[in-house]
């Protein structure tokens, strides 16, 4: 009876200990391992160097501009890139090889580069760059302007979206703080 009780008491202590282990373990898994498991890491199809281009004096707006109809041009088309990179260079440096890869795979085949866009929103979201042009780009976008190698792209294995795709609550919070409408059709289509 006594033994049983002591067992029981030790059991309670053990239970608490294991509960603590479970608690801490869950925190470790939840904060440490789970996020790594949830996302697969992808690299851009072409290692585009923003630094090289900006050092050449190319303004950001030359490629990422608002059109006269108010549409944001987004990323330049293969044709725009081909205005400079139309032919293979034969250059054996790392950058040269990357340029030749681009020319061979995309310019010559007439395909568009399947860039992995860090912020792409679902089809049912309309985002107006024209309405947000007062903000710094980096308020929402990764600051890629000074990167030589584009940062890795993390794709959510479950939802298929980028890790950096802004969530609806983030949009709503900013809209609310700015006094902008949060009506459905302000953003949805």
């Amino acid at each position: 009876m006594e033994e049983k009780r002591s067992n029981s008491a030790g059991g309670v202590g053990g239970m608490a200990l294991f509960a603590l282990i479970g608690f801490v373990g869950a925190l470790v898994v939840g904060w440490g391992i789970f996020p790594k498991m949830l996302y697969s890491q992808k690299t851009q199809p072409i290692r585009f160097s923003h630094t090289v281009h900006s050092q050449l004096g190319i303004e950001c707006e030359q490629c990422h501009h608002l059109g006269p109809d108010g549409r944001f041009a987004g990323l330049p088309s293969t044709e725009s890139c081909a205005e400079c990179h139309g032919e293979e260079t034969g250059d054996t440096s790392a950058n040269g090889k990357e340029i030749d890869k681009f020319v061979k795979d995309y310019v010559k085949t007439g395909r568009q580069v399947p860039w992995l866009v860090y912020q792409y929103q679902p089809d049912n979201v309309f985002f107006s760059h024209a309405a947000h042009k007062g903000f710094e780009c980096t308020k929402c976008h990764l600051d890629v302007a000074k990167t030589d190698t584009p940062p890795p792209y993390y794709e959510n294995r479950l939802s298929g979206y980028s890790k950096d795709t802004m969530k609806m609550w983030e949009c709503e919070r900013c809209h609310a703080s700015m006094g902008t409408s949060n009506a459905c059709f302000v953003c949805h289509k």
């Binding site: 608490a16 603590l20 282990i21 479970g22 608690f23 869950a26 925190l27 789970f34 479950l158």
Partner: peptide, 26 residues
């Protein structure tokens, strides 16, 4: 009992991580 403790602790702990919320959302 220890096992139940581990599970209970783990469950409570998981509530303080993004696992359930993020999984439901995704």
């Amino acid at each position: 009992r220890a096992f139940l403790g581990l599970v209970a602790g783990g469950t409570v702990g998981a509530m303080f991580t993004p696992i359930p919320w993020k999984l439901i959302d995704d």
